[in-house]
Computed example of a mutant assay.
Amino acid sequence: MTVQKTQVAIIGGGPSGLLLSQLLHRKGIDSIVLERQSRDYVLSRIRAGVLEHGFVNLMREAGCGARMDAEGEVHEGFYIAHQGRNDRIDLEKYADGATVMVYGQTEVTRDLYAARDAMDGVVIHEAANVQPHDLKSESPYITYEKDGSEHRIDCDFIVGADGFHGVSRKSIPGDVLKEYEKVYPFGWLGILSETKPVSPELIYARHERGFALCSMRSQVLSRYYIQVPLTDKPEDWSDDAFWAELKSRLPEDVAAGLETGPSIEKSIAPLRSFVAEPMRYGNLFLAGDAAHIVPPTGAKGLNSAASDIYYLYHGFMDHYLNGDSAGLDGYSEKALARVWKAERFSWWMTNLLHLFPDAQEVDQRLQCTDLDYLFSSDAAQASLAENYVGLPY
């Protein structure tokens, strides 16, 4: 068995793990990242593309913001289509000048890989049977297998950024961990197409046939979603059927301007709200999807992971550079306080804009009234905008 030594061992080579590793390296703190999949597989995952202003600044602090700033789309607002109208939320006006950046998670990950390579960061791909050990001791370690050999990493701390199905959360004893979950009775059918976006800003649509979202990755790459039953499969939907259903859920003028074309990716994502507490056990820290999942309606999944990384980054800096462990000791409480606010916002947006299978007529009237109130109240729009651009870290 080969043995390596590092200060922070990170399980999970997605954007969360890579970002933390990059930030720590720039402060002289050593880390090793373990990823179960290959780099090509990680870069093939199609994920979120709306970045809060805090995440954008964190990418810049990591030295990874140049391409994002050059190619990303700064959005100062978004639209909510409802009752035949297409009303706009002015983020810049209602969130004290804050905006969001539309820049795909794949591109974020690509930039982080490039930065790790440039600094000779250690990212070990295709690490099998990863297992953390001695989490309550002062000398935790990780074992894994690669290329038929066993390996061990001795470390001071372990960060579990390995997603909902990863090993990290499962390593916390059941009598310590408490999990909260709500599974929604529908999913999002999404397609990626090499077409011009129908709108310069995102459009969220609430319609009697179900929710829809018009998003983008660039000016020549569009991402669209429609709400579908959980029983549906991507192969049940031809491209023509998707475009027809999307058009039916959009205002007529928007639908008339929709450019259609072949899908280059098509998938269905289930929706759930999930939180695991605590986010620290001994010297193991959970981050991102390993600890919490949000429905994508509020664009909070990747952004909530980034806030975890912000708290961990500053906690490790204080510990190693200043001898102060208060940030690490308070990590779980501080991270969860922000996570639950993101969960609330995503839950509210989901309930506001989706058609629920068991909804009664009164529920739909209340949804419409909620939207009417939203666009009649500066205070309500300010609350939405404040949450959408991202609450302070």
Results as ranks from 00 to 15, higher is better:
378 D>H: 08
38 S>D: 04
236 D>T: 01
1 M>A: 14
241 A>E: 12
62 A>V: 00
2 T>Y: 10
88 R>M: 14
363 D>M: 05
384 L>G: 06
112 L>H: 08
244 A>W: 01
77 G>H: 04
209 R>F: 06
162 D>N: 03
360 Q>I: 03
15 P>E: 09
71 E>N: 12
260 T>V: 13
170 K>I: 08
275 V>E: 02
277 E>Q: 12
106 T>V: 10
292 H>A: 03
178 K>P: 03
147 D>Y: 12
381 Q>W: 04
308 D>V: 07
74 V>Q: 11
306 A>L: 00
378 D>Y: 01
207 H>L: 09
138 E>G: 06
339 V>R: 09
180 Y>P: 01
363 D>W: 07
152 R>H: 06
71 E>C: 07
197 P>K: 09
252 E>D: 13
179 E>W: 02
364 Q>D: 15
227 Q>W: 07
270 P>K: 09
284 L>A: 12
350 T>F: 00
279 M>T: 14
223 R>Y: 11
186 F>R: 03
201 E>F: 06
174 G>C: 04
319 H>I: 02
231 T>Q: 09
4 Q>H: 11
342 A>K: 00
225 Y>C: 06
217 R>T: 01
60 R>N: 15
8 V>M: 04
83 Q>N: 15
118 A>R: 13
233 K>S: 15
365 R>D: 10
389 V>H: 07
284 L>S: 13
147 D>A: 15
52 E>N: 06
375 F>N: 05
77 G>T: 08
369 T>A: 15
301 G>D: 06
223 R>L: 12
55 F>G: 08
37 Q>E: 06
193 S>Q: 08
208 E>A: 15
13 G>T: 09
363 D>F: 05
167 V>Y: 10
171 S>E: 02
56 V>P: 01
362 V>G: 00
323 G>P: 10
68 M>A: 14
264 I>W: 09
310 Y>D: 12
86 N>E: 14
35 E>T: 01
391 L>V: 04
192 L>G: 03
9 A>P: 08
127 A>C: 07
137 S>I: 03
65 G>D: 01
12 G>M: 09
223 R>N: 11
374 L>Q: 10
246 L>A: 02
169 R>G: 14
305 A>D: 03
54 G>D: 11
258 L>G: 09
252 E>N: 11
263 S>M: 13
185 P>W: 00
242 F>Y: 09
285 F>S: 06
387 N>E: 08
272 R>N: 06
129 N>Q: 09
219 Q>W: 05
155 C>V: 11
199 S>Q: 00
186 F>S: 05
266 K>D: 04
167 V>A: 02
288 G>T: 08
170 K>P: 01
116 R>V: 13
